[in-house]
Design a binder for these strands. Sequence first.
DNA 1: ACTTGATCATAC
DNA 2: GTATGATCAAGT
Length: 223
Amino acid sequence: MATTPPQDKTELLRRADALAGATLADIAAAAGVTVPADLRRHKGWTGQLLEQVLGASSGSLAQPDFPHLGVEMKSLPVDRLGRPRESTYVCTVPLEGGCGERWEESWVCRKLQRVLWLPVEAGGPLAERRIGTPLLWSPDTEEAARLRRDWEELMELICLGRLETITARHGEVLQIRPKAANARSLCPAIGPDGEPILTNPRGFYLRAGFTADLLRRHFQLPC
DNA sequence: ACTTGATCATAC
DNA sequence: GTATGATCAAGT
């Protein structure tokens, strides 16, 4: 059952709000899909189910999930207290073509301009996990500044050919980790002397602490 | 317990 | 191979 794209942000939020409290079994049944036993071989299942039900249209294209709204949707696995249990994948790291790019035009910045976060219970039987309260979020000044600092620091290392010195420990809120089918995957990159090399594909990820903070600020009373 | 590095499925 | 969707599982 494919859902038509939402006409505007209000309709998208209305649909997302309607999912709050539902189990993945409920949503899968409404969508006419089967719930897998676990996520071990279906890691993207939850996100793809929610995209389908909300009417995302971009599929596997390098576009926001709702291009006409400029909104990216992300499911977010959370514990029973609503705290994210995993980092959040943002996008592939440009290992050779991203040099000279400004933060404002970067893929990371554009993807994170508007994100619809959909918390999903982590742990327990997959079918019984519930959707939490959705949040349509844009980075505030401080969040944007932190993201920008990390991105600029990491991209500078890449463009200087020092990619191989980058580990997941770099970056306060944005980190770089492998993102590939396996460790044997190779793609072109810039070597230490500026020469072309082959290395493992990498992705940008938001640390769990970053998403935990943004959820707290929006769902807790300030005091 | 938590994070880092590795991996799984699918479309094109 | 690149992109989409992420979580797994080893290491500390």
